[in-house]
Write a protein that binds this DNA or RNA. Structure first.
Lengths: 226, 226
DNA sequence: GCGAAATAACCGACCGGTCGGTCATTAATC
DNA sequence: GATTAATGACCGACCGGTCGGTTATTTCGC
């Protein structure tokens, strides 16, 4: 008879996989995929190597599960949706600060992704489709809305969204992964403000009349629409 | 007797190293450091594996030589210096387009760097000190000059420089290395314009009087100072 | 209620292929 | 023929994946 009832078996297996994926994330964050040893992952999960193969057929499958399950910005579409009616003058800095928080909280995952997806077309496709495009499209939708309303200037919204993600992505790389923290440390506030202001001012339409008191006038516009 | 006179020997060795490093770049760009085989590198250089070890003691030394010798933006300081007196309205788009060109021309190198520097603190330090910081400082110097002149708004110039590099770096990753070219292709012009305008507008001081015809007025300021 | 049997989870020694690095030999040059 | 560059067969450490065996838990037979 099974140790776990059939009804709970699936969730048991999922919990097991989570333990292993968590351990794998810790190991992959320190060494590349090829350098990481299945023995190390097993040790980190406090399991024997053979046990890993009860839950994942190969090392490659383990990595791909990791990328798929632990998405970088799964909450982004929801977050953006909830801010749809918040004008950019307030919405963009808020979004930027939020994204930066998520990035920093997931720096291990980001490190794994940026290192591994390029060496394997299958992985690159997996990531771009399941994570990257979803995030850009969501941001681009927000930008497009406010471009149509004339608050933001017209430009390719997907390209603009990538500008934003790119700034933050690079700050993450440079600060957390490339030793920038030691050589020229930037506070979380500096990063969020710099990127947020750069993007906001870079994206706004030139409207001299709105410029001096843009937040309140934008709020007025939003209220008028609601 | 040596095959090559002592006077020419050093340059002969350097030429040999170049052949090997070029081959290594091609191989490392396709596979990760750990996955790349010394046999493959030797084959790409049209040499036997043993010959590689006459010029580099280990595989790791080969990679580090590659990072050190083929800097990503060696010409940047000179480029920036030559534009010191060109006002941002013209200077920034020009610089952005130039940097984007260099990035695309060196995408193989960028791919190697972004994948490999994180797994080894020594490599990360080597890159940040010899390549990264040099580029940011150079850009930051230009920005600082025009901040002091009141054309650009005050902010941390190193952080701002990283915003710019980050946007372009990410476009490179996303287009060339992550398959974005297939899913949402962006022309070189779109990239350069989007990033250039985003950064320029994001960095300019809010000067309603300059806004309508900013390039000519900035040129006037520059002329006044010269 | 208790030993036996059944089952599932887990273990870790082992195997076979792989590849960084070595070195005895060969080729090229003067 | 002396000297050095180049070679590539070879070595052995390493590691992904396997599988026969062990342990823990539940159920069955009586």
């Amino acid at each position: 008879m099974p140790r776990v009832s059939a009804a709970n078996h699936d969730s048991y297996v999922e919990a097991r996989r989570d333990v292993i994926l968590n351990a794998a994330l810790r190991i992959f964050a320190q060494a590349s995929f090829a350098e990481a040893r299945m023995d190390e992952i097993a040790a980190a999960a406090e399991l024997a190597k053979g046990t890993l193969y009860l839950y994942f057929p190969t090392k490659e499958a383990l990595l791909q599960s990791l990328i798929r399950r632990y998405s970088l910005l799964p909450e982004l579409p929801e977050m953006v949706e909830s801010m749809r009616e918040v004008p950019p003058e307030l919405g963009i800095p808020t979004l930027v600060a939020e994204i930066w928080n998520r990035f920093r909280a997931r720096k291990d995952l980001a490190s794994v992704i940026v290192r591994e997806i390029h060496s394997n077309p299958q992985r690159a496709k997996l990531f771009t489709e399941q994570v990257g495009l979803r995030a850009y499209r969501s941001l681009a939708g927000y930008l497009d809305t406010w471009m149509k309303r004339g608050v933001l200037r017209q430009q390719d919204p997907l390209a603009a969204a990538q500008c934003l993600v790119g700034m933050l992505w690079f700050f993450l790389l440079s600060q957390e992964l490339m030793g920038g923290k030691d050589l020229h440390p930037l506070s979380d506030e500096t990063v969020a403000t710099t990127a947020g202001q750069m993007f906001l001012r870079g994206a706004l339409a030139a409207r001299p009349s709105d410029r001096k008191n843009s937040t309140s006038s934008a709020n007025q516009r939003a209220r008028r629409r609601a």
